[in-house]
């Protein structure tokens, strides 16, 4: 299974943990000093992207997140030891038990992403699939699955955008339901990548 908290479309506002935070200057220097760990918020290819985009992305996530490797801050050749070390290091930063009290929600979200990156890369089978897709340029770093039924976001006022997003979600959903049982414990992203590999 996967987390899909990164997708801005679908987050119910009433959810305190994942609600939209108003754009605000980020007072916490740790975020900026850890570019890799926030790279999912900047455009791919720019893991050390400008601080400005990091701040902006508090309300708008990039649709093409960078890779799990960027998130963990390790090279693509990184071994299991490095993955584990990076995971524990980032856990110390983002786990809600140790995050700054006023940013627990934000950090929780990131911790869940770090967790998904770790779970994917620390499993040789899942990592191999992930690497293959990455080589093909498929940057599905985070499960692109949308939260059907919960996209209740009033900030999405642009109806046409709404519709196109919704349609893409529906097609995701169909594919997902068809292939749900193809990979027992894989995340949706991993299953989709596998499916693409099989059909291409």
């Amino acid at each position: 299974m996967c987390c899909k908290c990164n997708s801005s479309v679908i987050i119910p506002r009433t959810d305190p943990c994942f609600s939209f935070l108003p754009t605000r200057p980020d007072p916490h220097p740790n975020i900026i000093s850890f570019p890799a760990s926030v790279s999912f918020r900047v455009r791919p290819g720019g893991p050390h992207g400008p601080v400005k985009s990091i701040l902006n992305d508090t309300v708008q996530f990039s649709s093409e997140p960078a890779s799990f490797y960027d998130l963990l801050g390790i090279p693509e050749t990184g071994n299991l030891l490095e993955i584990k070390q990076a995971y524990k290091q980032l856990a110390r930063k983002y786990h809600p038990d140790v995050s700054p009290p006023d940013q627990v929600e934000e950090y929780t979200k990131r911790f869940i992403q770090v967790q998904e990156a770790y779970e994917t890369l620390s499993d040789p089978r899942r990592r191999a699939l992930y690497d293959r897709d990455l080589a093909k340029g498929i940057h599905l770093a985070f499960s692109a699955r949308r939260r059907i039924g919960l996209e209740f976001d009033e900030q999405m006022e642009d109806k046409s955008e709404w519709k196109s997003r919704w349609e893409s979600q529906l097609s995701h959903l169909k594919k997902r339901s068809m292939y749900k049982d193809s990979g027992d414990n894989m995340s949706w992203g991993a299953r989709m990548r596998k499916q693409r590999n099989e059909t291409s």
């Binding site: 959810d15 929780t108 059907i148 039924g149």
Partner: peptide, 25 residues
């Protein structure tokens, strides 16, 4: 869609909603 969320304080919340094909909300 049934979604479950366990937050930092171990509180469990369950969300559920229905969406129909062709509907926008």
């Amino acid at each position: 869609n049934v979604c479950m969320d366990i937050d930092a304080s171990n509180a469990l919340r369950v969300f559920a909603g229905v969406i129909m094909p062709g509907e926008q909300s």
